[in-house]
Design a protein around this nucleic acid. Structure first.
Lengths: 223, 223
DNA sequence: CGATGTCTGTCTAATACTGAACACACGCGC
DNA sequence: GCGCGTGTGTTCAGTATTAGACAGACATCG
């Protein structure tokens, strides 16, 4: 009897990253990661905040028993690793690029300084934090209220929207049932069971790639 | 099969509220609430942010079936209702004073303006948001990893610390099993079962009030 | 006092969920 | 082709959890 994890995806208003990049005297470093590459690992010293310019990042946590939970997914214009700003000295989770990803690496102290000087950045940072807050709170509420069946349905819908940010796609990138289990917070058996159920009911189609039908919403909404 | 809710408690670094209060031209209103009084309700228009000067506040959410989940608890120097800053137009939950409480009510627009002008407030606000983020994320991870037994143990420990902020008390205010169920995200039967188990094992004592023994930590830590 | 409401302790039947196993398919490297 | 790793479909026994019921304890109030 042990659940495993959940997924999140923070998305925020627009922000002219270029402008920020051009700001004189902002010490930052641009880093590129390829698919599957680790950005930082649980337990490492935490002194920098990342800002995603391009790509996608997964935040996962491992507990004492080696079980892994996917706590959040991040996309362009999202910050992550900001825990160090609140006094966390080590990374509480591991972040991994899920697609080729470009991030801005900013020293904690530098960010602190720039937040005072740059109102636009400061606004964006606050907006991001608020949005992220709301998202994580929704996930928590989801966990508190819903069965794993509904959580899976919700996760699939979120992932479908996540796909490509611009075009209103409903096709998901390759996600294994194992990963889904880790996102929903249950076991693969359960995921498999529900996936087949959803398929039988016509809520999703899949062979290798997953297509999410809008009708899946009924699973989440019907109470 | 339906879980119910969880508890949170945000606490942040010190901040000279008085100084903020005295800031010239900050439009704000001081409000007092007595125990059990509602501060705002789910669905109402959201145009203000609250800042707690004194007391304690519970944030709960009701889902379609009328089930209630306690999503967070707040104390002095915490903000709440800040969702409106991120574009939420209605309250996503209900807040209730759990003790006599004094809050500062700040108009969203006003806060936006002051965040630019007042670095100390801005820093405090960001620090609060970061801390709150971390807390909610921890709660989510708690839900993803742990059984309700461990979640109850963790909740009790958190509540014990919450008691009185200064003295290292281990005695809890009156909390019904129903409320605990709502905080942990399970049923009262389950709470009752575990409470008696914990009592038998000497982890807690209780008749009317609950005393939490440090040994309860073993429940959370032992993996 | 009797009525009422709230909280606890206890129980039960039904269900959700876990952990683990096994066979099978598929792609990949060599 | 062969071996290997990874992901799927399926089953299953055992456990955890739920929803609901019931009775008793206790306080409050008119």
């Amino acid at each position: 009897m042990k659940r495993k994890k959940a997924i999140r995806n923070g998305r925020t208003g627009l922000f002219n990253a270029q402008k920020f990049l051009d700001t004189a005297g902002v010490a930052r470093k641009v880093m590129d990661y390829h698919r599957g590459e680790s950005i930082y690992s649980q337990g490492e010293a935490a002194t920098t905040v990342m800002y995603i310019q391009k790509g996608g990042v997964r935040l996962s946590v491992v507990n004492g028993s080696g079980k892994e939970a996917v706590v959040a997914m991040f996309g362009p214009t999202d910050f992550f690793g900001e825990g160090c700003m609140a006094g966390q000295t080590v990374r509480m989770g591991t972040t991994t690029a899920v697609t080729p990803t470009t991030v801005l690496v900013i020293q904690k102290m530098e960010l602190l300084r720039v937040l005072h000087a740059e109102h636009e950045l400061s606004d964006h940072f606050i907006a991001y934090m608020l949005a992220h807050n709301i998202r994580v709170e929704e996930d928590l509420i989801d966990q508190l209220f819903n069965s794993s069946e509904k959580r899976l349905a919700r996760t699939l819908l979120l992932l479908a929207r996540y796909g490509e940010q611009d075009q209103p796609e409903r096709v998901l990138a390759k996600v294994s049932q194992e990963t889904l289990a880790s996102m929903v917070g249950t076991t693969r058996s359960r995921i498999n069971f529900f996936m087949n159920k959803f398929r039988k009911l016509g809520f999703i189609e899949y062979n290798g790639t997953i297509k999410v039908n809008k009708s899946l919403l009924t699973v989440v909404l019907h109470e």
